[in-house]
Each structure stands twice: as C-alpha cells, then as structure tokens.
Design a protein around this nucleic acid. Structure first.
Length: 120
DNA sequence: CTTCTTACA
DNA sequence: TGTAAGCA
C-alpha cells in the first residue's frame, strides 16, 4: 500500500481511479496532496457539510477550491476538522475551537523553539 | 449524481 | 448545528 493510501482512504475524487499512484516520488506531504470532496470529508469525519463550512467560516481551515468552486479538503484540513469536531462535540463553540486549534498549532511550533530574546 | 449557496428551524 | 430548496 502506498503512503497516500495509508489509513484505508483511497478515494481520490479528482484523480483517475485506474491511474493509481505511479511513483510517489513527489515531495508533497501525505497530508497536503489528497483533496477530499465535501461529501467524502463529511462522511470520513462523520460531520455535516455545513459544519465543515462553518470551520472555514471561522477561519479554522481553508480548503482549496477546484472546479467551479468545489471545495477540496486535504488531509491536513481533515485533520483540523477532526480536531474541531472533537472540541465542538464536547460543547466547545466553533469560534473557540478555532482559537484552540490555532493555538495548539502555534504551540507545536514553539515546542522546542528557543524563546525570543526579550532583551531583559 | 455531487457540490454550492442561501435560508430557515 | 442541522436540514431544506433550488441551482450549476
């Protein structure tokens, strides 16, 4: 199984089904290449389409747009949406979930990053 | 058939 | 937040 298929998801909506991944020598991250459609993302994440839209409305995720303005969710987007789903499912407002996830992302970057020299 | 937008509950 | 109607 190819890395792109990892997870059991091999439903490339836009890609040709017959043309399976030829040689994954692309430097694209596994999470950035695949673009799921609304129905696929909503089904995989078990969320409603309006929910995914609310996430981008909150600025949490910004799915890429393809043909005719059809949303294309990458696995990175699905990942954020999944986390948002967890938070919102626990009663966290979408607006708060947006901030939390954004902060978590920033914290992950600041994890072992040297503290800024405040000059004290 | 699937997605998109807007509106309503 | 979820569902509905109409449209592309």
């Amino acid at each position: 199984m190819h890395r792109w298929c990892a997870g059991g998801f091999c439903g490339d909506p836009g890609a040709s089904m017959n043309q399976h991944h030829p040689e994954p020598d692309e430097k694209f991250d596994d999470a950035d290449y695949p673009a799921y459609t609304m129905g696929r993302a909503a089904a995989v994440l078990e969320v409603t389409q309006p929910f995914l839209r609310s996430l981008e409305g909150a600025g949490l995720i910004t799915p890429q747009r393809s043909t005719g303005g059809h949303r294309r969710y990458s696995r990175a987007q699905l990942r954020r949406a999944s986390r948002a789903r967890e938070l919102v499912d626990q009663g966290t407002p979408v607006t708060a979930a947006c901030r939390i996830i954004t902060l978590e992302d920033q914290l992950a970057d600041h994890t072992n990053q040297p503290y800024p020299d405040t000059g004290t």
